[in-house]
């Protein structure tokens, strides 16, 4: 990817989404889930920005906040210079045609009582896209474009397979000709063969319609195939943010390194396998220093005291780790390439 001169399509800055938990009794202290806790990134036009991370790291919450489907606690989400968090009511509703979402579960993302043709038509009617008389043609065209047959328009979602349902969801997201499509694990519920077809379809659509994707996944191979830039999330924070090639060639953050080593053939030439021990700490009671310290083989005294901030290092990469130097040396680079890691 060459550097892009255009201003980015999407710019998220210091996004926080905290969920207050219900109190067991009125005098109990307020406990809060820090689902997303200070996330910033930019998505250049016509590119794909990937977010990876374990379950519970806050990927879906980030996606829903960008989609304005949950309220951000703080931070801004600028789409083409407009801060979406400042919109509400009708102005938000009108803005929605520019950003759409493809959901994870093809079984619960389509209303079981609506015919698929109507599912794809609804965005056109509700957001008043195009002349009413042309909408039926547009639905048919969308159906063809995502690889469904127009004869299937009158069927109900339960009459389709998972992969076909996901195509209906893609057609729905495309209907209003959005600029941004947020994809939350759009293939993780599908069979492997279907995954590849669906990903190919997404790539084609991006090329043909100039789409920008915010693409969320826990599958590194999917992200490697599709994404130009990748952010690795851990417990509500981005710990590393880099272009695809650098990330897969040489991960900097110890967590990224551990994630990549779990993917056969994807760990930048090294054969070591790192098994992460234990679970991430709870997003309610966050540790004081680095959130990864409890599982990090390189953790030091300082890591437990002081939280590392995301900072730029050599090669335009960003990483949040005390032990990564400004020139881009990470602690695991010193390890012998084929030794089993000491984790």
């Amino acid at each position: 990817m060459s550097p892009i001169a255009d201003p980015p399509l999407l710019h998220v800055s210091d996004l926080k989404v905290h969920f207050p938990l219900p109190r067991p009794h009125p005098f109990a202290p307020q406990r809060t889930v820090h689902a997303v806790d200070g996330v910033s990134f930019s998505l250049p036009r016509r590119t794909t920005f990937g977010i990876v991370g374990e379950s519970g790291s806050g990927k879906t919450t980030t996606a829903l906040a960008v989609m304005q489907l949950i309220t951000a606690t703080s931070g801004s989400i600028e789409l083409d210079g407009t801060d979406l968090t400042t919109l509400s009511g009708e102005s938000l509703r009108r803005a929605r045609r520019r950003f759409q979402m493809i959901f994870q579960d093809p079984y619960s993302s389509l209303n079981p009582r609506t015919r698929v043709g109507d599912i794809v038509r609804e965005p056109l009617d509700l957001m008043e896209v195009g002349a009413p008389a042309e909408r039926a043609d547009r639905v048919t065209e969308l159906f063809r474009r995502v690889g469904l047959r127009p004869e299937q328009l009158a069927l109900f979602p339960h009459q389709f397979s998972g992969g076909q349902r996901q195509r209906v969801g893609i057609a729905r997201a495309l209907a209003s000709r959005p600029d941004l499509i947020v994809c939350d694990e759009p293939v993780s519920a599908l069979d492997v063969a279907i995954q590849a077809q669906t990903l190919n379809l997404l790539v084609e659509l991006q090329r043909d319609f100039g789409l920008s994707y915010l693409f969320i996944s826990h599958d590194l191979r999917v992200v490697q195939y599709l994404c130009d830039q990748i952010a690795v999330m851990y417990l509500g924070r981005i710990v590393e943010l880099t272009d695809r090639n650098s990330l897969f060639a040489q991960p900097l953050h110890p967590y990224t390194w551990a994630l990549l080593s779990a993917v056969p053939g994807a760990s930048g030439g090294s054969r070591q396998r790192v098994r992460l021990q234990g679970d991430p700490p709870s997003p309610i009671m966050l540790p004081r220093g680095c959130r990864f310290a409890g599982r990090c083989p390189f953790a030091e005294e300082r890591c437990r005291r002081e939280e590392p901030q995301l900072r730029q290092v050599a090669g335009g990469r960003s990483v949040a780790c005390h032990l990564v130097t400004d020139s881009g040396e990470a602690p695991h680079h010193a390890l012998p390439a084929d030794a089993d890691s000491p984790v």
Binding site: G147, R149, I194, A196, L199, E204
Partner: peptide
Amino acid sequence: MSLIAPDLNDADKAVDMPAPA
């Protein structure tokens, strides 16, 4: 990965006959 033309020999066909809606 090659781009597979969607549909036609789509392995992923559930109800192929034009079932009544």
